[in-house]
Design a protein around this nucleic acid. Sequence first.
RNA 1: GGCCGCUUAGCUCAAUUGGCUAGAGCAUUCGAUUCACAUUCGAAAGGUUAGUGGUUCGAUUCCACUAGCGGCCACCA
Length: 1138
Amino acid sequence: MLNYFSHLDFDIELTFGFCHLSFINVFMPEMPKAYNPREVEDKIYKKWEESGAFNPDNLELAEDAEKFSIAMPPPNATGVLHLGHASMLAYEDLMIRYNRMKGKRTLWLPGTDHAAIATQTRVEKIIAKEGKTKYDLGREKFLERVKQYIEDSRHTIKNQTKKMGSSCDWSRERYTLDDGLSRAVREVFVKMYNDGLIYKGDRIVNWCPRCESTLADDEVEHKDQKANLYYFKYQKDFPITIATTRPETKLGDTAVAVNPKDKRYKKYINRVYRVDLGNGEREIKIIADREVDMDFGTGALGVTPAHSMADWQMAQKNNLPIIKIIGEDGKMNDNAGKGYKGLTVLEAREKFTQYLEENKLIEKVEEVDQSLSICYRCDTPIEPLPSKQWFVAVDKKITIKGNKYFQNKSLKDVALEVVRNKEIKIIPERFEKTYFNWMENLHDWCISRQLWFGHRMPVWYKSESRIKNQESRMKITFIRHCQSEGNAKDTPDGRRDSALTKKGEEQAKEIAKIVQAEKYDAVFSSTLKRAKQTANIIFGEKKIIYDDRLVEIDFGDLTGSRTSELDKFREAGFPNGEKYTDVAKRVKDFLEETEGKYQGKHIAIVAHSGVWKVLEHIINNKPLDSNLLNSHADLGLIEYEKINSKFQIPNSKFSDEVYVGVESPKNEDWTQDSDTLDTWFSSGLWTFSTLLDQDHKKYKTFEEWVANSPDLKKFHPMSVMETGYDILFFWVARMILMTTYATGEVPFENVYLHGMVRDKHGRKMSKSLGNGIDPIEMIEKYGTDALRLSMIVGSSPGNDLRIYEEKIEGYRNFVNKLWNISRYIIPIYVKNIESEKGNSMSKNKELDIGYWILDINYENLTLADKWILGKLSGLIEEVTSDLDNCEFSQAGEKLRDFIWSDFADWYLEISKIEIKNNTETKNVKDIILAHCLKTLLKLLHPFTPFVTEEIWSKFKHTPNPSQEGRSLLMTEKWPKFLFKAKKEDIADFNLIKNSIIAIRNLRAENKIEPAKKIKAIFIGKKTDLFKKEAGVIKKLGRLEDLVIESKKMKVEKAISTIVDGVEIHLPLEGLLDFKKELERIEKEIKENEKKIIEAGRNLANKNFTERAPKEIVEEVKEKLKNSRDAIIKLEEKKKLLF
RNA sequence: GGCCGCUUAGCUCAAUUGGCUAGAGCAUUCGAUUCACAUUCGAAAGGUUAGUGGUUCGAUUCCACUAGCGGCCACCA
């Protein structure tokens, strides 16, 4: 785009060759007519980054500079930046920039979180589109995909964070899976384990069948829905009818609970009945529990200890047996009984209600409201299941040497204490109550997850011990493919994809006869044709899972050779092909993975001789020597039951012998727990794990590492934790728990909670509603500064904020206004002051131009100068205190009002007139204008960093020559400026201002065209003042002339009003509409009468005059007097009109 | 069921420990425009501060209740 000024200059020079004008251009900053953020922002961000000033180590700071630090809440490494992130970044950057300018040692540490469940779910969805599951890929390959996905999205998020203008220190960027952070996770885990705060427990957990993982209590969401409440008896002669919305779980009932006060059932308590629900006999005990609601259902509740939290607790209290009938796959298991095994929960429900109906056991079915528990990531209904998992004990009291918090205190005690005694302050305060409520009711925290992505648990099991467990083993039946075309010719196929021969097909049909397909829980096959065909013939209708890890060894160059040739290469491996160890690797990978899923189940594998050989090696410990390798698998079924000790069985927690450590044990007999840790475990360490010295290998112990990490000393605890109230529990609470424990310090001093971003009507932004706003699109359209302002102004902590395009547009206009103010001030300032006199003005670095103004004699300033400087001084004070108190919206609003209404609409306009009327004041005026602008740029910089920095660069900044050319607004000092205007001067200015407004009003009301120049008559006090300011009043009131009189005089044929006791008349010879003017005056009189009545009532009240503050009483008296005067004058005027 | 919040102009929001005529922006209406800015300037209209009662000289502000809306937590099967 061609620039306005350079374009002009080009014309002039060529046409006239006028050197003087071209000389001016040297000092004329190039500023296009409208601010164009798109051209400016990236350039400015680059400039900041290159300056190194995002990194506090590069700032020139006082030795004892106070620290100010924020850990950026790591956006999930998934997807893209949304408005929620944008608002978080706007707030944090605002605080950071403000404190940096105040001279603090300021660090904003950015990073990303691996967000285990969210990320894994997302990648699963992506590969599902390719028709695959994570099991198709296997743990390793799947994690590879996740890594790749994260790389991409992290890059996107980082760039978008930069787009928001975030001044964070990228040199300290962290990721929860970094080497150092991962070690911190293991260290803290081990420390907690050794302190007895982490334990393995067997209890009900929230299980998501889709994620195939546990969830923490607060990762479960609730959805209201209608459900059928079934009333029925276990069998006809059972005395009590129970009610339930989940009949299928009743197959696992071991008791019926009633309220001890319930007269209906009292007599049955403690009796035991034998019942049969069609799945075998069992005992049902009648127990009493106060928690049972007598008014719900029949007041009697079937107790299912294995599949309900509440029932589990009752079972513990009453020593009831626990029957697990639903498995980890969300399906009914063996215990559910014949006919139920393998059914989904819903299928089982249908079948069971049918059974009840057939046996006439159902009394009635009622529709009730129910809240269904669902997974917060994938909305799948949660199954409560008993399971052995790892927990953090939140109530266990411990004492830690050198930790001031943990002196016979539990994690919960400390987390409550630090907020209660205000070591951590939560803004807004009301969330403290929410926090206490949550923390007080916190149960032990389940931290193990059956996900693949995340920090692996630093737990190892002694392998032998798990083999003893028969139940958990997977049973394998291996079937070699039948005769292929290659086999028939004695040229084994290897990777050549040949089909079965006729004879082969016949062989397969024979095998099919002896195979009971329904015995198998899953059938796997190699992806080669001969195996696929074999599998299809044998297993017919059963689903077959193809896995390319099961293919034959690659013979490489020898593909198509005879067996006798091949045998020579089997031990050493085939040239350009595979070795058997390669095959062993992929088959092992396959086994490890399927074992996780098919514990205690029976699978079939249809594959090749090569696969059989490595199975013999892996499972039966046969060495990979010529004996084995030159032999071949027989046709038919080959069974494997015993599993080699190298194998872990990932989800089983049956081993008694456990090793917990930061590094894996040396002895190979140990296998690591395949579970991963809850994401929030690692995020809970975020404030300090990110500050630990990342060159961690030089520290032997955790304590040493913590004690010697310089950043930790400098920046921890973080000054502010700024985040959305939605993750107060997930994250904020966990950081408090974990950090006080691990470091003996609170993680942060203040918590600032922002609200959720909503649309104009308060609705959540969502794809389905189509009301989502893409921050990047808004930045493209209106600029980052406008977006930032629209999120900060008009929002308060803890309250949701509504955002819509018109709002952003409004702030775009404001940014442009600032731009144009600068476009007016800077060129003349740079030309007149900086280029000619600037250097001689102040050589002293310490003096900024603000102090220089103080040298100007107060009396030489005009009324407008005094007013604006006084107001500016007050503004600095207010904005500073607002920002210190986290009143960001207020500060922004004040800045906007001052800049637009006071500075641009009044002072700037007046300054033009005053310069015109008295050219000698020009330099002083330019300095004041520039001073105001520079100060405003500084004040506004934390809100709108880009435009202010860009405007700043247009100044030459000569008062501080040492910084010439490299001065960044970002690192300027926060303004301090004291200018006291005299009270009476402020009052005088306001009188002038109000008079001008009154004149404008009269003109507008009476439709006097602006072009029509009229005169005005001022009668009353302050004649000198009006005479002095006549020029300004005339220009701004669009008056032709001004008559100022101190004495009373008659003014007929004029429209009139009264401002602070001064009469203003606009004579309109021949044009005056008497009737209208009369009406107007009547109206004004009435308004004044109202005021008199109100003031009179107050003053007549003794209580008021005695008790109200003096100033207020004085004010009321003054008001009363003014109104009385006004009425007298208006009445006079009224008479004149007749 | 428990806890928390909200209700002010057509819309989005203000109003410092209770005290000036309850303020802004957007939208609306009227008027202007070569001079930094139409992403502009000047002006108008728009309010029983959800309702009722109380405390107080004085309530948008404090208290109680009512109505409506929203959120969080909780083991009603």
